[in-house]
């Protein structure tokens, strides 16, 4: 199978494309339906954040094969304003937009690994990994 794919996120239809591509990878890795749903939902949340808070960016979708361990890693990058207080941004219910404030904190609960690197004025990179 294809090992990685990079998709640019510049419109709300790109968010749909990201969901479909992530679904495709998860199916090919033979993820269970629940794990497919979790990683696709997380991808949707982060792709929308990249678009709305980061002013657009990219996602790198990677299939991981570590011997017996297979998984899916998604890296979202933007060159937007960055997140001044990551701890606050990760709190349930915290929102700067008009959403429900569950995007970041909720996504963290849907995956196995979650990493966020952000510099004010430079951009944000969020990496999530779901193991099969």
């Amino acid at each position: 199978m294809q090992k990685n794919e990079i998709i640019s996120i510049n419109s709300s239809s790109d968010v749909v494309l990201v969901r479909q591509a992530v679904r495709q990878f998860a199916v090919e890795l033979a993820f269970s339906l629940i794990n497919q749903t979790k990683i696709v939902t997380g991808a949707s949340e982060l792709a929308r954040n990249t678009l709305e808070h980061g002013g657009g960016g990219t996602v790198n979708i990677e299939a991981l094969d570590r011997g017996t361990r297979r998984g899916l890693r998604l890296t979202f990058e933007d060159s937007g304003p960055g997140i001044p207080d990551i701890e606050l941004a990760l709190k349930d219910g915290f929102t700067t937009g008009n959403g429900l404030g569950m995007g970041l904190s909720g996504t963290k609960r849907l995956v196995n690994e979650f990493e966020i690197v952000s510099r004010v004025g430079e951009g944000t990179r969020i990496t999530i990994t779901k193991w099969k």
Binding site: T37, K38, G106
Partner: peptide, 14 residues
């Protein structure tokens, strides 16, 4: 609503 969607929604916190 599909069961997998319901499970994911609850974990997401909605």
């Amino acid at each position: 609503m599909q069961p997998a969607v319901a499970i994911t929604l609850v974990e997401l916190g909605l």
